[in-house]
Design a protein around this nucleic acid. Structure first.
Lengths: 111, 111
DNA sequence: GAGGAATATTCCTTTATCGGTATATTCTTT
DNA sequence: AAAGAATATACCGATAAAGGAATATTCCTC
């Protein structure tokens, strides 16, 4: 995966919000959808976009598709994800996304 | 300047090549143009794109317009520029861009 | 195998991006 | 003021992105 592709993936607000949540580990589409309060299509498309470019990997378990950051993705991704963490603390939207994710997770499991 | 905008700026091959050279400090359009062997319009447009978004600042001196990285740009930019440095050492194109820049600089001054 | 849930894909429209050609602007020099 | 150099802008065409609506796929359960 080349650097330009990596930055293109990062250069979209929805994808940044998704990646912010994926710092927490593997998540399925509906969890992301709920936490970000966005449409299913939008989620699926952005996840597909990043997977296609090697940023994410997915694993299907029953009806659910779990996405996570590709552990062998570009090293620059890890650095930016880490920086995103400290940025998220100061950013209202990213912070409340995380908060909502925790609520979503604490509710009934996807299964 | 927001994070998404920053990443959009980084998500283009020509702009990454420009930024790689601007790590060396302030450069005028014709120096960049020569070092990257690209058209004047292309250079000017990408520089304008980044300036408009707060990534670069410029200073006109006589006929020449010198661009440099905005010292007060997003902190994430600095981190990525630094990382770009180590990446450039391994990347053929970025490395030869730097080489050519040094040739350009060693030649007659712009003035 | 029929129905339902989770997800992906197709089609469409709108908007952004990129690069080129041609032209304009700005500044310097004569 | 005219010419030339360095740079910017306007306009155009091609391509990519982004999101919505509708539909398809996949897998589970009954």
């Amino acid at each position: 995966m080349d650097l330009v592709t990596l930055y293109k993936c990062l250069g979209d607000p929805t994808r940044l919000r998704i990646l912010n949540l994926l710092r927490e580990g593997s998540l399925c589409v509906c969890q992301l959808q709920e936490a970000l309060d966005e449409s299913q299509v939008k989620m699926s498309k952005h996840l597909g976009y990043m997977k296609k470019r090697g940023l994410l990997v997915s694993e299907r378990i029953a009806n659910w598709n779990y996405y996570k950051i590709n552990p062998v993705a570009h090293p620059m991704l890890k650095a930016n994800m880490k920086a995103l963490g400290s940025f998220a603390a100061k950013d209202d939207e990213l912070a409340s996304d995380l908060k909502r994710l925790r609520e979503v997770k604490s509710q009934a499991d996807c299964s």
